[in-house]
Every structure is written in C-alpha cells, then in structure tokens.
Design a protein around this nucleic acid. Structure first.
Lengths: 201, 201
DNA sequence: CGCCGGATCTGACAGATGTCATGCCTGATC
DNA sequence: GATCAGGCATGACATCTGTCAGATCCGGCG
C-alpha cells in the first residue's frame, strides 16, 4: 500500500486528486496540505511514501517545501505536480531533492503510474520537459538581476526598486539593462516575462 | 440522474474532477472537452444537464464557449469553474449566460452541491465573489483602452502597439495614459496588471 | 601576488514614455 | 439640432528608461 501526502492549495483540485488516487487499489491518501508549510508538517508527522507537491502554493512554495521535506524526512519521496512546465522549475525542483516532476496536463491515468514509479525508487521526469530544460539551460541571471526583475514584474519604477532593495537608481538601471540583454528582451517588462516563463525568478 | 459535461484544459484536473463527481450517486459524466471549441461541440451532441466549464482554455475561452452553448443549446446549464475570482470574469460569465460561478478554491464537497442546485434551475454564485463584483463595479475602460492594455501586457512598445492596432503612436499613448488614469496606476505595466486582475481585459 | 567576475556606484546621452492642450469626426441621447 | 462620449490625431513638454563608459570594492583562483 502506497501512503500518499497531497499538497495543493486549491481545495477543489486537491479533493479531486484525492478522489482520483483513492480509486487506485494500492494507494491511500494519509494527509492533505493547503500550503507548503502544512506540507512539511504533515510529511514529518505522517511519513508518507510519496508526497505529491504543487509548486504554486502560498506561505511556502512547493520548491522550498520540497527542500525542507528532503532535509527533515529524506525517506519521503517528493513528486512535484505543477501547472507550468517552466524549464527552470524542473531544475530547481530536482536540486531541492524532488524525485519526479509531472505537469498537470498529463493524462490522468499516468499520474498513478508516476506515483508507483517514484514509490519504487525511480526518478520520473516528463520527457518533453527534460528536453526543454536541457535546451534552455540554467539561469544566466545573477542574484541581483533576479531581484530587480522580480520587482519589475509588478510594474515598479526604478525608484521603487531602488528603495525596496536599498540600491542606487543607477545601479538598478544597470541590472535591468544587463538582464534585458541576457534575456534578449527589448524592455524590462519583456525581460521579466521571459525570465518568469523560463522559471528563472 | 444529472448528466455532466466537463470542460477543462488540464488533463489531470479534468480526470480528477471526473473521478470526484463520478463518486456521486446521482451524477454521471457523459462527455469531456479539453478546450472551448470541443466544449461547444460536445454540448450540442450530448445535451448534458450541466456543463462545468473552466474559463482559462485554449482555442475558445470558457466565456466565449458559454455564450455559444447558451445560443445553440439554451437548455444546457453552464456552471463556470475557474481558478481566479476576478470580479470582471464573474460579470462577463453571467452576461454570457452562465448559471453559476464557482472558484477552484471552494471545498470539494461544495462542488456537487453547486452542480445539483444549477441542475435544479437555481443560480449559484460564490458569495464572496458576488460582493467583490459589486464592489469593484464594471470595467471603466473603453474598447480601445482595453486593446492597448492587452497589447501592453506582453511588454510591447508604443510603436509595436500602434502597428498592431493600425493607430498612430500618439493615439496609443493617449489611450495608455487614460487607462493608467482609470486604473489608478503609475505606468502601463501596473495598469495592465490591475486591469487583468480585475478581469477587465 | 595578479587577475577576474560580481556587486556597487556615478555621470552622460538618446530615445521612449506619460501628460496635456487641442482639434476633428461620428453616433447616441435628450 | 445641440450636446456628449468615444475614437482618432497632432505637437510640445517633462520625466523615465535603457545604454555606455568608467570607477571602486571584494572574494576566489591560478
């Protein structure tokens, strides 16, 4: 019997996944979590065989939760389940100790198969994603460039970003400029979007 | 027996919802669709009692699909099921002929209840959303302002937008300026984001 | 030790952006 | 038939952005 932990912030989707996996004869959902922090607590408490973790979650992101679970209860195998196949996400998820990465667009029948393989100790990767990940490579951005881009995502001005990061306005513009160059964009907005699309933020 | 049509682009979520609702004794999923166009076809062909339609779908959006279903087979009751509780979405969904609006963050048990109520002829609205919808009111943007904001979302420059909409650069800047004013934003990026957040695009 | 990349800063400059005043044309409303 | 809102446009202005050339510090590496 494979004991499962479900971590997904949308109630309905979580309940539906629970119903879906509950139909499998060899699986049982032992705990559910609505955010990353709850996921860590539940993993420690219930020690499931496999933790199904969404990346987009409040309080603590799925990646941070994965890292924490991997640190505290390494025998719990984390299978990342997410909406977006951003190449950067895959890489960071695996770095955080995930044992598998499945996008929500895969057929429902494949999920149970992925869970079984992870439970058996295999590494499960969406093949198309693995290719994309190798193709686009790791993030070319430095930490600071990431910071300014993240701030620019919401439409902040140079002055806003400078204040938020305690930098001079000129420095912020320099980082933005180099980030724009590295992402082959034509302005900060485009740069922020492509960086996010690649999972570099 | 309530006959259901499920329209949701993410395979896994669709399969999971199907499993969840399949557990209800008085419901049966008679068709599934992965985009808006398929949803319309399936609604015409299978004439379900209730169509569960996601808003974010490729090819044809859930709102457009709802309008089309309402036009072609008005006896099919559409229940919108979506990730985002954007006030503008609710309004446009209801204008398109939807009979209910449920966000994916509601408890799983409530979904079946909502389906039953819609099937019985009731209108089902998330109360918190209805309040938000009345609070933020309808879109203050004119059609053209919407157009330029939509184009600005991706980080396009004034020249790009002007070319795309066959307008002069000055006109585009005027629309952007008035849109920025109406959304109480400080630049085009912020304006585009708040407009999208309110479901005005 | 010397070199290099990353973080930080300044100053200067061209081009993009946001605002405003002003005008014209059209369709709806009173 | 006058008024008004919306679509469309121009020109001028101040400010913001993006780029470039330098400059200083620091930590790692050969």
């Amino acid at each position: 019997m494979i004991r499962l932990l479900l971590a997904e912030d949308q109630h309905l989707v979580r309940g539906a996944l629970s119903a879906l996996l509950g139909l499998e004869a060899d699986m049982t959902v032992v705990a559910e979590a609505a955010n990353g922090a709850e996921a860590v607590t539940a993993a420690v408490e219930h020690r499931p065989d496999v933790a199904l973790v969404d990346i987009e979650m409040p309080v603590l992101s799925g990646i941070d939760a994965t890292a924490e679970i991997h640190r505290q209860v390494p025998e719990v195998r984390v299978l990342i389940l997410t909406t977006f196949g951003r190449p950067g996400y895959l890489r960071r998820a695996m770095d955080a100790g995930a044992r598998g990465f499945v996008v929500k667009d895969t057929p429902a029948a494949d999920l149970a198969a992925a869970v079984r393989r992870v439970a058996a100790g295999e590494i499960v990767l969406d093949p198309s994603l693995a290719v994309a990940s190798l193709g686009s490579g790791p993030s070319p951005l430095t930490d600071r460039e990431r910071d300014v881009l993240r701030a620019a995502l919401g439409g902040a001005s140079v002055a806003d970003i400078a204040a938020a990061l305690a930098l001079s306005a000129g420095t912020v513009r320099n980082y933005l400029s180099s980030a724009i160059g590295k992402t082959a964009a034509r302005n900060r907005t485009e740069a922020a979007r492509t960086a996010q699309h690649n999972g570099w933020l």
